[in-house]
Design a protein around this nucleic acid. Structure first.
Length: 558
RNA sequence: GUCCCAGUAGCUCAGUUGGACAGAGCGGCUGCCUUCUAAGCAGCGGGUCGCGGGUUCGAAUCCUGCCUGGGACGCCA
């Protein structure tokens, strides 16, 4: 992977600053950190920095003077065609056309690795996401986190990190007990007993379906045995079925995991006890009112939190502490990213506090909160509550909208914003969804390249210096942005930049297509045709990578 | 009551961590298919960036006070 043009330019500016200092052209005590941006206006070049404006105060010089001084110290070369100062004090750079043309070959050489980068700090990263309790099917509200987590994982991997995608299965705790008894109650109900489902039990029809399945598979034997034992056995079966349903539903959306980590293993392995011992030895635990508390208030949290109830049962928080002990201290992840729904927001501080109490830098735990998804049918609100059973499942959603559009829809919005999902609109507009715009560009590319192949046209040895049309150069410039986008997403943990970029890339291709005929019928254009085919092939590489990173299909025809 | 997130075009949303004239898609209006896919392209119209102060060369972006919407504050998960 060659260095990014951006980094080469930053380097040039740094050297110019060094020179300015040693030649006493600028009164600098030390070299400031240099940042460049991508100007939105093409007239301002490919890269720009506002550094002169920032240096004005410290140097007591006019920004434009600083910009002009630096301009004189930055030589143009193979990469940079032009450097100029622009009022009130910007320093602009435009890239050398021949350099741009050569990048077409670089992109083709990189092939499916195009867009990948080498990070300054390669890390072992875990992305834990979805992690819905296996007490019911996965529904629309969870879809957002599922898509976000899977794309984030893919991008982090492209950014050179060692990524593990993990689902935390909460198979211990009171909600699971309630779920188990709910299935048991339905089981008995089918066998003719009076309904015994408690008011706070799980009401959804899927519980009945589950009970039927178990009845079909296992027969009536659970009716004959003692209740506690029956609930336990039925519970185990129901849980396994639920987990595998969830796994299948997520897979239909293209979301997969490497590890399904079970909560109860924390207790079996002794890690739970180990975690408590560690916290105890550091003086972070206290007994009060018959319960065991984590003294988080002393560590800056708003209040202390219960770890073990007076009943002796550990809280969810307790196993979550043990789980993060496992992530950081047992499995040695450098960075752990948790994707949580907005309802878990209150949990952030205490978990970070707990991680800190274990001697782990809390900044190594990064929590992304996805805001609520409000589900609508037209103007009608659709409630999504698992216990009432009235919800739209992920499965239904994928069947109705399709996985690609579904992914794009959730992906294109920043995680921190609440969003409305109008089912009516989503299906009605599906043919005009931006996802088709992008895929259409890809299909067009494939169609052209197929035609070229049919005509035995080769482009490997094409003369890329023929690519001089503004639309051609714009397309090249746009493609070269991908590594920067990958880096940005991996740093900000905001995958929504990717679909937005992909849309721009598709636009750049559509514009090229409209303005530059690729395969010419005129034999005298053979060289230009070859060059444009090569560019088209590079565009296929770039768009394909985008679609792959987003977990979407790349159709060769539409 | 305290804390967190959000408020940008008719609608759905971006806005490169304080920069150059505020963008895209959809919807509306007008053009473009006898040559590689019209699921496309070109153009027009559309904004008090929730409101008021402040910080500075410069604010949609940072600070502060309000307004509106959502969420979190349990020996639930």
């Amino acid at each position: 992977m060659p260095p990014l043009a951006r980094d080469l330019i930053i380097n040039k500016i740094e050297r110019a600053l060094e020179a300015a200092r040693s030649q006493n052209l600028l009164p600098l005590d030390d070299i400031p950190s240099v940042e460049v941006e991508r100007p939105s206006n093409p007239d301002h070049g490919d890269f720009a920095t506002s550094l002169p404006l920032r240096l004005a105060r410290a140097t007591r010089l006019a920004p434009i003077h600083i910009a002009e001084t630096l301009t004189g110290l930055i030589p143009t070369d193979d990469l940079v065609e032009k450097v100029w100062a622009a009022p009130p004090g910007f320093l602009n750079f435009s890239l050398n056309t021949h350099w741009l043309q050569r990048q077409v070959a670089e992109i083709l050489d990189a092939a499916e690795n195009f867009g990948s980068i080498q990070p300054a700090d390669p890390r072992k990263v875990m992305v834990e996401f979805v992690s819905v309790n296996p007490t019911g099917p996965i529904h629309v509200g969870h879809t957002r986190g599922a898509v976000l987590g899977s794309v984030l994982s893919a991008v982090l991997q492209a950014a050179g990190h060692d990524v593990t995608r993990e689902y935390y299965v909460n198979d211990a705790g009171t909600q699971m007990e309630l779920f188990y008894s709910s299935v048991y109650a339905r089981y008995l109900e089918i066998l003719g007993d009076d309904a015994q489902l408690s008011a706070d039990g799980y009401q959804g029809d899927y519980v009945i379906d589950l009970a039927k399945e178990i009845l079909d598979d296992e027969g009536e034997r659970f009716a004959g045995i003692e209740q506690d034992e029956a609930v336990k056995e039925i519970g185990n079966i129901a849980r396994d079925k639920m987990v595998s349903h969830i796994e299948k539903d997520l897979a239909s959306l293209g979301v997969t995991f490497q590890v399904w980590y079970r909560e109860h293993t924390l207790f079996e392995s002794g890690e739970y006890q180990q975690t408590l011992d560690l916290l105890e030895s550091e003086g972070h635990l206290a007994t009060r009112d018959g319960a065991l508390w984590f003294s988080s208030e002393a560590l800056g949290d708003e209040r202390d939190n219960v770890v073990v109830r007076s009943s002796g049962a550990p809280t969810y928080f307790a196993s979550d502490m043990a789980y993060h002990h496992n992530k950081f201290l047992q499995r040695d992840f450098d960075t752990v990213i948790n994707v949580w729904g907005a309802d878990h927001q209150g949990h952030i501080t205490r978990l970070k506090t707990a991680v800190g109490a274990m001697g782990v830098d809390p900044d190594r735990l990064q929590i992304i909160i996805t805001q609520m998804v409000t589900l609508k049918r037209g103007n009608e609100l659709v409630k999504a509550s698992k216990r009432s059973g009235d919800f739209i499942s992920l499965k239904e959603l994928v069947e109705e909208v399709g996985p690609d559009a579904c992914r794009y829809f959730f992906l294109a919005r920043a995680p921190g914003t609440q969003m409305d999902f109008d089912l009516e609109l989503a299906t009605k507009e599906s043919s005009e969804n931006p996802v088709y715009y992008v895929q259409y560009a890809y299909a067009r590319i494939c169609s052209i390249l197929q035609r070229a192949q049919d005509q035995d046209l080769a482009w490997d040895d094409a003369d890329l210096s023929l690519l001089e049309d503004p639309h051609e150069l714009t397309l090249i410039r746009k493609m070269l942005l991908l590594p920067e986008i990958v880096e940005k997403v991996s740093q900000t943990l905001e995958p929504h930049h990717l679909p937005h970029y992909t849309l721009e890339l598709a636009t750049a291709f559509h514009n090229f297509y409209e303005n530059c005929r690729v395969i010419s019928n005129n034999p005298s254009d053979a060289d230009l045709t070859a060059a444009r085919l090569k560019l088209t092939a590079a565009a296929r590489v770039a768009l394909h990578r985008c679609l792959t990173l987003m977990g979407m299909t790349a159709p060769t025809r539409m």
